[in-house]
């Protein structure tokens, strides 16, 4: 019947657009990754426009693999994504279980909790790194200074003061530093995405079988056993969803890293590509291909997990 053609026709624009979107830029990236191509070169001006005569084979890939930033960027990408996933899922489950039962003001608490999810990443980063985490002017700085001042006051007390003078001065932490900037990014993204996890888990908890729980209570299951053997397995599927969606978003984290430290000590793959792309397009493209391969690994794994549940 004609029923067959129409659905194809209706899908066609979406499919074609995405196909073009995927193939053309990706094809160009692939091409650039095999040629010498830089934006500015006084010495070799012929390299500044893409051309097959500048063929470099796997040279760009070797260059990228040898640069010490590359390995750091991969490690850092994974460190950031995995930390965020771990924290958001744990916090998400705990908070969801906490606020799932009715209590006065439940609706308001929900609204308060979801708010961070809607904040734009650029604002999120600016807000956290300056107003909250800044070691001098941010709340962190002010709080540490306040504690030190308070301790100073205690040291003036006769007799007891001797005890407090043994205490060290507290040092505020600079989150723009090499060792700490990834922590700042993890903190702010966790703040933004935990609400998402909470709401999805809550939605799921509401569909939990109450009779099953009552049966468990009659069977003598403790609160912990109920959580461990009924609630947690019930949350398996939503956890998979939360992990998948967040992986999609966090593998391409960029604004936060740029704003926190301009990538100082904390480059992930997208950031490294951005840096290369300031001049060495060949290297940027080769890094891009590595990023695609990494993403594919993650994608195959995640899509399998979610795909099963999709068509039911």
């Amino acid at each position: 019947m004609s029923d067959r053609k129409l659905p194809r026709l209706l899908q066609a624009p979406a499919v074609l657009l995405l196909l073009v979107w995927m193939l053309i830029p990706l094809g160009m990236t692939l091409y650039f990754s095999f040629i010498r191509y830089v934006l500015n070169s006084l010495r070799r001006p012929e390299w500044t426009s893409p051309s097959l005569s500048n063929w470099r084979g796997f040279g760009n890939y070797e260059f990228v693999l040898k640069s010490k930033d590359f390995l750091l960027a991969i490690q850092n990408s994974l460190f950031i994504v995995c930390s965020i996933l771990f924290l958001t899922v744990i916090l998400g489950v705990l908070i969801a279980v906490l606020i799932n039962k009715a209590f006065p003001g439940q609706g308001v608490v929900r609204v308060l909790l979801i708010s961070p999810f809607f904040v734009m990443p650029a604002v999120n980063a600016v807000l956290w790194i300056n107003m909250i985490l800044d070691p001098v002017l941010g709340l962190q700085g002010i709080a540490v200074a306040g504690i030190n001042e308070f301790l100073d006051g205690l040291r003036q007390i006769p007799v007891l003061g001797g005890f407090f003078s043994l205490w060290p001065e507290f040092e505020p932490v600079s989150f723009r530093a090499t060792q700490t900037s990834a922590i700042a990014v993890i903190m702010m993204v966790t703040w933004q995405w935990t609400p998402f996890a909470v709401l999805i888990f809550m939605t799921s908890l509401q569909s939990e079988d109450q009779q099953q729980k009552e049966a468990a209570v009659l069977d003598g299951a403790s609160t912990w056993s109920q959580f461990r053997f009924l609630t947690l397995p019930h949350l398996g599927r939503p956890i998979a969803i939360v992990v998948m969606i967040q992986a999609i978003f966090h593998l391409s984290l960029y604004a936060e890293i740029e704003i926190v430290s301009r990538g100082n000590g904390n480059k992930n793959l997208p950031y490294l590509i951005g840096e290369f792309a300031n001049n060495n397009i060949g290297a940027a493209s080769a890094t891009g291909i590595f990023a695609v391969i990494l993403a594919n690994f993650v994608a195959i794994f995640l899509l399998r997990m979610v795909g099963k549940t999709l068509m039911e």
Binding site: T29, A247, L251, Y271, G288, I289, A291, V292, L294
Partner: peptide, 9 residues
């Protein structure tokens, strides 16, 4: 899941 950065340039 295609990393945006890969096709930036």
């Amino acid at each position: 899941m295609l990393p945006a950065a890969a096709v930036l340039y």
